[in-house]
Nucleic acid binder design. Structure first.
Lengths: 112, 112
DNA sequence: TGTCGTGCTACGACTGTCGTACTATGTTTG
DNA sequence: CAAACATAGTACGACAGTCGTAGCACGACA
């Protein structure tokens, strides 16, 4: 079974999170489930990786947090939500461009 | 100017080195120049990264070192050459497969 | 004589990931 | 009703790979 190595993904976890937050604000648990479903279960982000990413990204100004006492239906515990900032959107575009370049270069060293 | 981030390449430096060593044995300085030329100057591996990769890879059994007093033409200083092992070849194939999967997954989070 | 290219080694800092563990509430099921 | 499972996190420290800085040594060339 081939697994995606964390060394490759490193540096693209932030991008994945921003991709999801571009659609709408969300919170940790939900984001981890979205990453799982978007990747068809091929990539499962670790909790600690995810939450430490939030800390870093908020420090960088790529996301902003806000707390909701409850979810919109009035159920559940309070959560910390995150929304993408303008800087985050720009960073996301940059990473997408960088990905294009990186992919092209790496593939020159790959044989299938 | 877009730059390839080391976080993305991390974990694929070994693969690039193995790609080169699959053709023929080589040594540090020469490999760094080949990486530069294959990538059209878009990726320049750092010396320290390269040489610490050699140490790791030899420990892993992916490469073997041997010293030549001189180059085949009889000039220059002695160098440490590396050749790929069978385990290295297998590791390279695995990484190529992994790359295919990783690329596919990452691209679901990328918008151009 | 000095600079540039070659060909390394050593050391320590930094960053992101991850294992482990713990807390706490809500929901479902035997 | 209790146990298990899903939800929603926080804290802490280890680890690996990259990278900055520095230094050494030799040869060629101007």
């Amino acid at each position: 079974m081939i697994e995606i190595s964390s060394d490759v993904i490193r540096g693209y976890n932030d991008t994945m999170i921003l991709f999801i937050l571009e659609k709408e604000p969300s919170y940790g648990y939900e984001i981890s489930k979205q990453i799982k479903s978007i990747s068809d279960g091929k990539y499962l982000i670790k909790e600690t990786t995810l939450y430490s990413a939030f800390t870093r990204m908020e420090k960088n100004g790529h996301i902003e947090s806000f707390t909701s006492e409850q979810d919109p239906e009035g159920n559940g515990k309070k959560r910390t939500y995150y929304r993408i900032t303008d800087a985050g959107k720009e960073y996301y575009r940059t990473k997408c461009d960088e990905w294009g370049l990186t992919k092209e270069v790496v593939e020159r060293f790959i044989e299938h």
